[in-house]
Design a protein around this nucleic acid. Structure first.
Lengths: 211, 211
DNA sequence: GACAACATACCAACCGGTTGGTATTTATAG
DNA sequence: CTATAAATACCAACCGGTTGGTATGTTGTC
């Protein structure tokens, strides 16, 4: 178990920055060594291959982001629907600065390597799914509390599918932001997502007190 | 103006297949030559650089897809809202086969090259925007016909922003499909998109006859 | 002196791109 | 219609630089 601030961590943090900027394939091992001030020998001492670094970077991303979201304020609402809406508002609020600062590492990597590296793809999938799993219970609570059960409906959906849909919207918003060169379009899409969630739960008033 | 079936077209069609499968950066000029049965000399006779091929591929993609969508059946509904919903249904229906067969060339390329090639990024942006522009008037008609004017509302949106939002959802759905290795998750997200559009226009009945 | 943590030097394969040259088509002049 | 000149289309071999990866050290620490 390496301590923080070690060479390994420096490489991993450089990977987060560089891959989000240039993409995984266009990022060379030499790029990562230069960005982290480390020699090639040191790099391959800590990672058996570039793909192994890719997997480790995805896992590192999962840790970093899970801390960020765990400490975010959107969890502190009594109404679970408010937590979901505050989550979306939080996602919208962090669309600031340059593109590599707010876009998603694992979305970028999954797009590039899904046909060439099963290991990296699996690590990216796990990262997205584990993040979606943190908001799925809030959606499920909100549905239960309001007696919303659309599973059998013609247009059936579930807490899990809505949680993943939020991630799809965000990933798509990142792509449009990259194509257009700024976050404005991403903000619009996240606004549409927030409106969708509000409409889904409209006319389904909260049932008395929780519990 | 080159005729169809020429060497240039063979390279372009190989680029569509190969880049959607491997990504732009991971696709080498030699890959494209092998896939199209053309020598390197011929390749650089038709394209000054790999990036020039990237731009041409994005423009070729725009042509190919615009024909596909222009001939699709969703245009033949009297109610403009039905056209929008049928468009989404059509997008869902073509999520079939292997991933490289239904994912988006320009979304993939924009993600990879947005920091390295302005020319390719601009061509990708133009492709996405021009496609969104084909459904925006249907959205606008549906809004006008039903007296829906959310532009000044607290949760303001427009025909343009909704048209682009559909593209964001699709691009995000492609990324999740790549991460998960199949189209199932993408279908779920497109279903959510369809439900969103229906909810947006619910309780806004159509005003009499058109005209 | 054993072992992890590095550093240096190096390699074969591959990268985008160029070279000099040839085959084929097209334009033009008599 | 023919001779010829000029483009265009194409090819195989090659180039310098970069790629991911390795082999062989050296250093510090228990």
């Amino acid at each position: 178990m390496p301590r923080p601030g070690t060479t390994r961590d420096k490489i991993l943090n450089a990977a987060l920055r560089t891959i989000r900027t240039k993409g995984y394939t266009a990022t060379s091992v030499d790029d990562l060594c230069a960005a982290s001030g480390v020699t090639k020998g040191a790099f391959f001492h800590h990672f058996n291959s570039k793909d192994a670094l890719g997997v480790a970077a995805a896992e590192h991303w999962t840790k970093v982001t899970s801390v960020l979201f765990a400490e975010a304020p959107y969890h502190h609402h009594d109404d679970p629907l408010d937590r979901v809406l505050a989550y979306i508002t939080f996602r919208r609020a962090i669309l600031k600065g340059e593109l590599p600062e707010f876009t998603c590492l694992v979305g970028t990597m999954a797009q590039e390597v899904h046909q060439s590296s099963r290991a990296i793809t699996a690590a990216c999938e796990a990262s997205i799914s584990s993040h979606a799993a943190t908001i799925e219970p809030y959606v499920a609570e909100a549905m239960e509390q309001r007696g919303l059960d659309p599973s059998g409906a013609d247009t059936g959906w579930s807490a899990a599918s809505l949680a993943l849909h939020t991630q799809a919207v965000l990933q798509g918003a990142f792509i449009l932001a990259k194509a257009k060169g700024g976050p404005a379009i991403a903000e619009d899409s996240v606004d549409h997502l927030a409106l969708y969630v509000r409409l889904l739960f409209a006319n389904h008033p909260q049932k008395g007190e929780a519990n």
